[in-house]
Simulated scan of single mutants.
Amino acid sequence: MASKLAVPEKTGNVISIIMTGYSSSLVLGVPLVVLMTNWMIGGGFFCCWLLSLY
């Protein structure tokens, strides 16, 4: 969808920005959720259980 909205010269740039967003959300989001659940619940078991529901 984004590549269709961009001008043809910028298609590669748009796709690289989207892929960077996906990668950075995984790299930053997963450890953040683990730290948050360890702080809130007090154990890593709840985090694994919660992620298994997804």
Rank of each mutant, 00 (worst) to 15 (best):
P8C: 00
T20I: 11
G44Q: 05
L26Y: 09
F46G: 09
M40Y: 13
L53V: 09
G42C: 06
C47V: 10
M1Q: 12
A2S: 04
L5H: 06
I41P: 00
F45D: 04
W49E: 10
G44L: 07
K10T: 01
S16K: 12
L32H: 01
Y54M: 10
K10D: 13
V7S: 11
T37D: 02
M19R: 12
W39T: 08
M1C: 03
K4A: 07
I41F: 11
M1Y: 13
V33M: 14
L35W: 11
T11Q: 15
N13H: 11
K10M: 05
S3R: 15
V34Y: 13
M40S: 09
S16D: 10
E9H: 08
I15P: 01
V27E: 00
G43N: 15
C48D: 04
I18N: 03
L51K: 09
N13D: 04
I41A: 11
P31R: 04
M40C: 06
M36K: 01
V7N: 10
P8H: 03
A6F: 11
G12W: 13
W49D: 06
V33L: 14
C48Y: 13
M40E: 10
M36R: 01
N38D: 13
W39N: 07
L32S: 07
S3F: 11
Y54V: 12
L28Q: 01
I41N: 06
S25V: 04
I15L: 12
M36S: 05
K4F: 06
L50P: 00
G42Q: 08
W49S: 12
A6L: 08
N13T: 09
L32F: 12
M36N: 02
L26D: 04
W49Q: 13
S3P: 05
T20C: 08
P8K: 08
I15T: 07
M36T: 09
S3Y: 13
I15A: 07
V33I: 07
A2R: 06
K10W: 06
C48H: 03
W49P: 00
F45A: 10
T37F: 13
M40R: 10
V30M: 04
Y54L: 14
K10P: 00
E9D: 14
L53F: 15
I17D: 07
C48N: 05
A6G: 07
S52Y: 14
N38P: 00
K10S: 08
L5R: 11
L50W: 15
E9W: 13
V34K: 09
L5S: 06
V14G: 01
G43E: 14
C48S: 08
S16C: 05
S24C: 12
T37Y: 03
G42I: 04
W49F: 15
N38A: 02
A2K: 03
S24V: 15
L5A: 08
S23L: 15
G29H: 00
I17W: 08
M19E: 08
W39G: 01
G29N: 00
Y22V: 11
S52Q: 08
I17R: 07
T20K: 03
K4Y: 08
L32V: 01
I18F: 14
N38S: 04
V7L: 10
K4D: 05
